[in-house]
Amino acid sequence: MALLFAKCDHQDPGAKDCVPAVLNKYHCTYCDVSWEDIWSCGCDDECPRCGKDFTPESSEEVGPCACAVL
C-alpha cells in the first residue's frame, strides 16, 4: 500500500499516492557489467556500456516515497 505525502511537490499531479523508491540491480551478460539504479518501480534499464535493455536481477524497496530520492 502506497503512503500519501500531502506535501510532496514532485509526485504526478494526477496521482493520489506516492510510489515507493526501488533499488534495482542489473547485470549485462554481453559486457559483464553490473550496476544499480533507483527508480519508482522494478523496471528495465540500459547497460551503461552497450545500451542493451535488461530486467533487474533484484529489486528492493528503499523508501516509502520515490519523490524523496529521485
Rank of each mutant, 00 (worst) to 15 (best):
C28I: 05
P48W: 14
G42N: 06
T55R: 11
C47D: 03
D37V: 12
C28R: 03
F54G: 01
E61S: 12
G42T: 03
P13Y: 03
Y30I: 09
L70E: 15
L3Q: 02
C65L: 04
C31W: 05
D44E: 14
E60N: 12
F5P: 00
E36L: 07
C28P: 01
E46C: 09
G42S: 14
D17Q: 04
V22F: 07
W39I: 06
W39E: 13
V19S: 06
A15V: 03
Y30Q: 08
G63L: 05
G14H: 04
D44N: 11
T55L: 13
T55E: 15
C47F: 09
C31F: 04
P64H: 05
C18P: 00
S34C: 11
H27C: 03
E60H: 11
C41W: 13
V62A: 14
G42I: 03
C8F: 09
E57L: 13
W35Y: 11
C65Y: 01
H10F: 15
C65Q: 03
K25S: 14
K7A: 13
E57F: 13
Y30L: 10
R49Q: 08
E60I: 14
E46S: 11
L3M: 06
F54D: 06
S34M: 10
K7H: 12
Q11T: 10
L4T: 00
D12N: 12
V19E: 07
D9F: 12
N24A: 12
V62G: 14
C18E: 02
C41K: 09
V33G: 01
V22P: 00
F5K: 00
A66C: 14
D9W: 12
D45L: 07
C31V: 07
C50T: 01
V22K: 01
E61R: 09
S59H: 07
W35Q: 02
F54Q: 05
G42D: 10
L3H: 04
G42C: 13
K52Y: 07
T29Y: 08
T55S: 15
W39K: 12
C41G: 12
D37T: 13
G14T: 03
Y26F: 14
P64Q: 13
D53C: 04
Q11E: 07
D32I: 09
P20N: 10
Y26R: 00
P48N: 06
V19G: 01
D9N: 10
S34Y: 11
W39V: 06
A21S: 11
A6E: 12
A2Q: 01
F54T: 02
W35E: 04
P64I: 04
C31A: 08
E57P: 00
K52L: 08
Q11V: 11
L4N: 00
V62F: 10
P56F: 15
M1E: 04
A21D: 04
F5M: 01
C65P: 01
W35R: 02
F5W: 05
C47R: 07
L3P: 00
S58P: 00
D44S: 11
K16D: 06
S58C: 08
Q11G: 05
P13K: 07
C67Q: 08
G42M: 09
A15E: 08
C28F: 08
V33Q: 05
D45Q: 12
S58F: 08
C18Q: 02
V19C: 05
V33C: 02
T29K: 02
C65R: 00
G63S: 13
D45M: 10
S40K: 11
A66L: 07
C41H: 12
V19L: 12
S59L: 09
C31I: 06
S58H: 06
D9C: 06
G63V: 05
V33K: 05
